[in-house]
Design a protein around this nucleic acid. Structure first.
Length: 559
RNA sequence: UGGCCUAUGGUGUAAUUGGUAACACAGCUGAUUUUGGUUCAGUCGUUCAAGGUUCGAGUCCUUGUAGGCCAACCA
């Protein structure tokens, strides 16, 4: 009995080491800290799965904390969308927190730092401060205001809070070391004046704390044990620890920041700024456009929470740069949908097929299995008649032996129906095939058990009955960009948009689909996985292609 | 003229912490199949470089090389 040993990622190793070193397992606590200034994307999904996954693994609480310290960019709309996305992914947070809830505490601590001569009010312009900051290779120099008296600092800071100054007149800075090799330690700004209404605190405040001052202290307030963020914050760790150290009380958990590499997905962009451009420039129809790598876009596209979680699990977490091929995401979608999605028949590019020996005006109902993956098979009835539609690509007048589909003189099985033989074609003046005339073998009906029905024919086609089929709008999506790394090319990433990322066609679908509800998943047999778009109505069905089926025929054909 | 981080098949991630480099995806063969789907079997291919320590190095040491990040009153 081999016990499956799941290997640990480097974050889990760190936690295990902490536990071994005596850290109390009950003190483990995590958080997912989005800034409510945009929609969550697949990269966030990875972080969500990491943090909440850790919560599950260690049976530890995970807070959802909004890092809302910049009223200029943040809105409640985003808060709601983020909560919705996290829940949809299937995670439950312990507390819903807001950095803005800590504004008073943060202010009090800032006063404490001033009193300890560890913070001061600087009254220079941001340009002057930047100038004095130096460069990575050149040390900074002290501000002329660095040695103001505690009394003066206290007075100024209070008046900043009281709204006596304009934005930009003063800032509060930590007094650390202007010559530090880590530029973040060169007296970082803790507070700036911002006369802006906040989505939660309204006009209560006109000074707002900066990220570095806020984040670690928020973790400390919530007693988060492991604060995980992306690599670009690695340099912030020193500052994070310095700030926490200033307020730390013996016996409490000292939060530990650790950094992991953000996940990059091929053929798309994963940055709020770039995604915003796609939306604003009208390249896509909003944040939830099914081509967007946002969680809302993936949801609308037809990705399931399970498939996204499994994707996050599979790609894992590490510290090196990476570019994950979308084909892995697509694999995760197929893997999940294969088990769940009922099979239905839909013809996207119709060609009329007439069974010349089938009685005119007659309709019969054939049995079709809903999903061969089901443990216990269920079936539905499908109308079958003399005139049907098949895919244009499934017929050729002539073809070689590798073409398993219908050709003149050749036989093929209509899925769940009969074996048919193509006899002749009807063409228009331009020579386009408009109809294929076939004969069918009445004894070959699927499931009838007759010797004729048991015959092996190489090809099986999907079809719909022309008189019974319903029209539907089908939106076929493809990768948004033609390059794997559109934002690492010579030109701006917008140059590499895939002009064929969306193709809309009018299709014929089996009649039962009229009942389909938005969000429902289906496999259009032999084509791909589709789900019902929120735009869909009973009199105007709309389907989105989540992902196509694996297509080994396409590979043979392109050879 | 700095500091921090990283380097394992085409891609992503592991390796019981110094002991047979593996898992998934992708690719390729074949079998099964009333979906050219699924499933199954097989296959290709890997430790950035050079030294060193060691019986033994992906792992430790040294020196390189390559890439990423750092100068917002953003997060």
């Amino acid at each position: 009995m081999a016990t499956e040993v799941k290997s640990l990622n480097f974050i889990e190793h760190i936690i295990e080491d902490d536990l071994k070193a005596g850290f109390d397992r009950d003190d483990l606590r995590f958080r997912f800290p989005p800034e409510p200034n945009g929609y969550l994307h697949i990269g966030h999904a990875s972080s969500i799965c990491l943090n909440f996954g850790l919560g599950l693994r260690y049976n530890a609480p995970v807070n959802l904390r909004f890092d809302d310290t910049n009223p200029a960019k943040e809105e409640k709309e985003y808060v709601d969308a983020i909560k919705n996305d996290v829940s949809w992914l299937g995670f439950e947070w312990d507390k819903e927190c807001y950095a803005s809830d800590y504004f008073q505490q943060l202010y009090d601590w800032a006063v404490m730092l001033i009193k300890a001569d560890k913070a001061y009010v600087d009254s220079q312009s941001s340009e002057a401060i930047a100038e004095q900051k130096g460069t990575p290779t050149k040390p900074g120099i002290d501000s002329p205001f660095r040695n103001r008296s505690v009394q003066e600092n206290l007075d100024l800071f209070e008046r900043m809070k009281n709204g006596e100054f304009q934005a930009g007149e003063h800032v509060l800075r930590a007094k650390i070391d202007m010559t530090a090799s880590n530029m973040l330690m060169r007296d970082p700004v803790m507070y700036r004046i911002l006369h802006k209404a906040h989505h939660r605190t309204g006009n209560d405040w006109c000074i707002y704390p900066m990220y570095d001052w806020t984040h670690g202290e928020s973790d400390y307030i919530e007693q988060v044990s492991h604060s995980l963020c992306t690599l670009e914050f690695a340099m912030h760790r020193e500052l994070y620890e310095w700030f926490v150290e200033q307020i730390y009380e013996e016996g409490k958990v000292k939060p530990k920041q650790r950094e992991f590499a953000r996940r990059n997905l091929s053929h798309t962009v994963v940055s709020k700024r770039k995604l915003l451009r796609l939306v604003e420039e009208g390249v896509v129809n909003g944040w939830d456009d099914p081509r967007m790598p946002t969680i809302s876009g993936l949801r609308r596209r037809g990705y399931t929470p399970e498939s996204i979680r499994n994707f996050a699990d599979t790609i894992g977490i590490a510290k090196r740069e990476n570019l994950i091929d979308v084909s892995l995401l697509e694999f995760c979608a197929r893997e999940d949908l294969n088990k769940k999605a009922p099979r239905v028949m839909a013809v996207l590019d119709p060609l009329k097929l007439v069974l010349t020996n089938y009685p005119e005006g007659e309709t019969e109902y054939v049995e079709a299995e809903n999903n061969p993956e089901e443990e216990e098979q269920t079936y539905r009835k499908l109308p079958f008649s003399r005139e049907l539609y098949i895919e244009k690509a499934d017929f050729r007048e002539e073809a070689n032996r590798k073409f398993f589909r219908l050709k003149l003189g050749g036989e093929v099985r209509l899925k769940n129906g009969y074996i048919i033989k193509a006899e002749s074609v009807v063409k228009d003046e331009e020579g386009n095939i408009t109809e294929v005339h076939c004969t069918y073998d009445p004894l070959s009906k699927s499931g009838s058990g007759t010797p004729e029905s048991m015959r092996k024919v190489k090809g099986t086609l999907h079809w719909v009955s022309a008189a019974h089929a319903k029209k539907a709008e089908v939106r076929n999506y493809d990768r948004l960009f033609t390059e794997a790394e559109p934002d690492r090319q010579e030109e701006d990433f917008m140059h590499y948009l895939n002009p064929e990322s969306l193709q809309v066609t009018e299709a014929f679908v089996e009649p039962g689909l009229i009942e389909a509800k938005p969000g429902e998943h289906f496999q259009f047999q032999r084509l791909g996985y589709y789900n019902v778009d929120p735009d869909s109505k009973p009199d105007h069905l709309v389907f989105n292609r989540t992902v196509g089926l694996r297509d080994s025929w396409a590979k043979i054909e392109t050879k």
